[in-house]
Design a protein around this nucleic acid. Structure first.
Length: 421
RNA sequence: GUGGGUGUAGCUCAACUGGUUAGAGCACCUGUUUGUGGCACAGGAGGCUGUGGGUUCAAGUCCCAUCACUCACCCCA
């Protein structure tokens, strides 16, 4: 019979790795809490229309990468390929804006895109991200970037992650710029790739982040978005930069950074890491002042970012910054079957006091149990054998220095509490 | 969707131009120590060499197909 494997592009998170996920998640929760952001959890699938209207029908994500099916009642449903759309939907649906003019949210969850897997890219993958609704001011950019910066600091990747920022202007200046790009590229039409030719019509901005060498050389002389900023756009971007400098968050300006989703406006940014291979974006985001309105809400400005959990963990691993799993405090050894009930009872009492205790389930030899204790990194071993049972005591051994003594069973909790101090 | 690379033990990898029973390290189990871990030594278990076909006296090795994994393009976290 053919063995069933996990589906292409999906991965099991095995016990030897799961603690790394747990640690990363707890850093995310802690940092977000420091900024007053609250977690939001939305369903894993949505109506397909949500992504048409937010991400954009012409993007690759929507046009060829979504897992979409028809529900029994005929509605088209889709496994979410990104999370901003869902969060905005939820924000509008529950009228969160009326509870407070500022909504600071963050999320952690699975996403699905049907792409060819490669390093740092899977079909089911995980992102965390933040979304802040309500403020049009540049300090909101500063705050959101600072959250990203703090998380990167906490996981130890600050030296490896480079922040790039750009402004793609507000909707008005962007449309004149797009026209300018069309005018500029038209004479070079023949030299452009097929994809770029299509983009020239639909979304000329996207030509800017091409990797094609020939196109890059044409690009050198292309008009810059910065020449088309309105005064307001320009001032806004200057303020963002000033605030970041004041927080000592280093960045470089990348005028070709445009990002692939349709909804971005003004500030866009990415943290790049060189340890990720070709898919080098660790985290990316930007402002999306029109999105809430686009999806049927009030004209509320918003800004956020999304970060790849797998990419974070990959970079953490490459830099040997992996978290240490928590070892048990105590390994409880039983030598005599008649002692099992007593062992389970005492172990449970110690657990209610907060100790992590592991005991053998295979009735192994004492030697094998000691080996387990050592392998698991337990600090202490408790031993319950014939003699101890007879005398109502427990053998105690410190595995670090080898010291050993006998303790009365009734005093065991007190003994450990004193040990801690 | 397109292109390259790789498939041998749980993991990392050996096996000269095709040649006898496919090996090693790590991990696992047991023992040296009948109630004491790490270290050392000894032993054990674990394989349809991804799958199917072909060439050959003979295939892990060569050829074809297929599947899987992987990297890259496109695009994105």
């Amino acid at each position: 019979m053919k063995q069933i494997r996990s589906v292409k592009g999906t991965h099991d998170i095995l016990p030897k790795d799961s603690h790394n996920w747990y640690q990363l998640e707890s850093i995310i929760h802690n940092v977000c809490a420091k900024f007053g952001y609250k977690e939001i959890r939305t369903p894993i699938f949505e109506e397909t229309n949500l992504f048409f209207r937010s991400v954009g029908e012409d993007t690759d994500i929507v046009s060829k990468e979504m897992y979409t099916w028809k529900d029994k009642n005929g509605t088209s449903l889709t496994l979410r390929p990104e999370l901003t759309a869902s969060v905005v939907r939820s924000y509008i649906q529950h009228n969160l804006g009326s509870q407070s003019p500022i909504q600071r949210l963050y999320y952690i969850g699975s996403l699905f895109r049907r792409e060819r897997p490669q390093k740092g890219r899977q079909r089911q993958f995980h992102q965390f991200g933040v979304e802040a609704f309500g403020s049009e001011y540049p300090e909101q950019e500063a705050e959101v970037v600072a959250i990203a910066w703090h998380i990167i600091l906490q996981v130890g990747l600050l030296k490896k992650a480079k922040l790039q920022i750009n402004s793609i202007g507000s909707a008005k200046c962007r449309s004149t710029y797009q026209q300018a790009l069309k005018d500029f590229f038209s004479p070079h039409l023949a030299k452009l790739s097929e994809v770029s030719q299509k983009r020239l019509i639909k979304n000329p901005l996207r030509i800017l982040d091409t990797k094609n060498k020939e196109e890059l050389s044409i690009l050198k002389n292309a008009p810059r978005i910065s020449e088309y900023y309105s005064k307001e756009d320009k001032d806004h971007f200057e303020e963002v930069k000033r605030f970041l400098k004041n927080m000592d968050i280093p960045f470089i300006i990348n005028p070709t950074l445009v990002r692939g989703l349709d909804y971005y406006t003004k500030t866009v940014f990415e943290f790049i890491s060189e340890d990720l291979g070709s898919q080098n974006a660790l985290l990316g985001g930007g402002r999306y002042d029109g999105l809430v309105e686009n999806l049927g809400g009030k004209p509320i400005p918003g800004i956020g970012f999304a970060a790849g959990m797998e990419r974070f963990l990959l970079a953490i691993k490459e830099n040997k910054l992996e978290f240490k799993p928590q070892p048990p405090d105590i390994y409880f050894i039983c030598l005599d079957r008649s002692g099992i009930a007593t062992l389970l009872n005492i172990a449970n009492k110690l657990r209610t006091k907060g100790y992590i205790i592991i005991s053998d389930m295979l009735r192994k030899s004492m030697k094998a149990q000691f080996k387990d204790a050592n392998k698991l990194g337990a600090r202490y071993v408790l031993i319950l054998g014939e003699d101890e049972l007879k005398n109502h005591t427990i053998g105690f051994k410190n595995l670090i220095n080898g010291n050993q003594k006998n303790i009365k069973q009734e005093n065991i909790i007190e003994f450990f509490n004193n040990l801690k101090n």
